[in-house]
Design a protein around this nucleic acid. Structure first.
Lengths: 219, 219
DNA sequence: GATACTATTTATAAGCG
DNA sequence: TCGCTTATAAATAGTAT
């Protein structure tokens, strides 16, 4: 009887950058799928919202977002008052926050997540940026030298944002937003002239949640 | 001989909303940790960027972000022509992009991811916002009525950003930013009078990166 | 890049302190 | 809420397609 097994089976590996590119590619593919599945399961099991973005080694990006965005935006816009947070001690909370640096970071994250999800919905942020960008151009000549020193400040800040976007144009991104069953729908299409591959996993799911929803309303 | 085993061992479960609340809490805790660990591993193994936010059942949010941005941004900004997309067809890509709605979304995602990671590093974005906010105040009176119609546009766009942040104050967020070993540092603290719990997993990871830094420089 | 096929390594559902 | 243990469910490394 030959003891030759078909494969070595799973081998233990160190968690460190994989050198061999082909190998890395396979691992990325598998683990990304696994990660998304896990996220999807967590979302379903606990009824929570999850947003995630993963940039592939090839400069493409995969994103996963659980449902919630829809319902969240809905409540948000329709203004349906959320149950949990009793608006009572809200102000105190706000005051306290000013001293908590960590909170600021958290806020930023939350804010960004919001935008992120919002964009997915209607591309609001991009519109904002364009608007800013346009305005900017109009100014440079006419005002700059007058006395609007402050304006420079603002402009600088905006430019940063604008540029960040502009600079990333060459990053072809793949976005796949899915919820469970996670691999349900799958559409593939070619876009652009660089052989860019666009993949979209989309399974509109059952969301729950309303975070920023009331935030808007209360403050 | 008693065949009584100490435990049932892991049992198979259906991927569906967990009813028992105490159970759900435990599962959430464990799986979130597992998810973050997986994300961390993927990030390390493949050297890719990952950003993720998870809202807990209690309206708190956990976020995970891996550094990698640096490598991406670095290549991007230092102009080192990224292997795949030869910067040659950049303009074409930009043009093409205008017609690809999906690409816009992707860009937005990328941009936001960037900001997100940037904040984690030094709260630059927050600073930006504050700056903008301040500048804004200085203007309102002096210029507004003159002829800077464009300015209004810009201001409006900025206000949106500012407001988004301000409006989210009541969302206590738990941010855990970790890289491997992922559970290294762990701080817990109580905040506010709502029994809000703030948890922070912080493994000042070895981030590398300065996004807006060179962005500013290059553009 | 994505899949299929196993042998193994991991992640975890339960249960207990 | 956490931490720890155990038995079992899942994920996945190595390969080949």
């Amino acid at each position: 009887m030959v003891n030759k097994k078909p494969t070595m089976g799973r081998q233990k590996i160190k968690i460190e950058k994989i050198a061999k590119k082909s190998h890395l590619q396979v691992t990325f593919s598998k683990r990304r799928a696994g990660l998304f599945k896990k996220a999807s399961e967590l979302s379903t099991l606990c009824g929570v919202d999850i947003a995630m973005i993963v940039f592939s080694p090839a400069q493409k990006a995969f994103s996963f977002g659980h449902p919630s965005v829809d319902s969240m935006m809905h409540r948000f816009l329709t203004g349906s008052p959320p149950p949990p947070p009793p608006s009572s001690g809200l102000h105190q909370l706000i005051e306290t926050r000013r001293d908590a640096n960590v909170h600021e970071q958290n806020m930023q994250l939350a804010q960004i997540l919001n935008q992120l999800e919002a964009e997915k919905k209607n591309g609001e942020v991009l519109d904002q940026m364009r608007k800013v960008n346009r305005s900017q151009c109009c100014w440079e000549a006419p005002i700059e030298e007058l006395e609007l020193h402050e304006l420079e400040q603002l402009r600088g800040a905006l430019e940063e944002l604008k540029k960040t976007v502009a600079k990333q144009v060459n990053n072809i991104l793949i976005q796949s937003t899915s919820s469970l069953p996670f691999l349900a729908v799958n559409g593939v299409g070619e876009v652009g002239n660089l052989g860019t591959k666009l993949e979209i996993d989309n399974a509109s799911a059952a969301l729950h949640f309303n975070n920023f929803a009331y935030a808007q309303k209360i403050c």
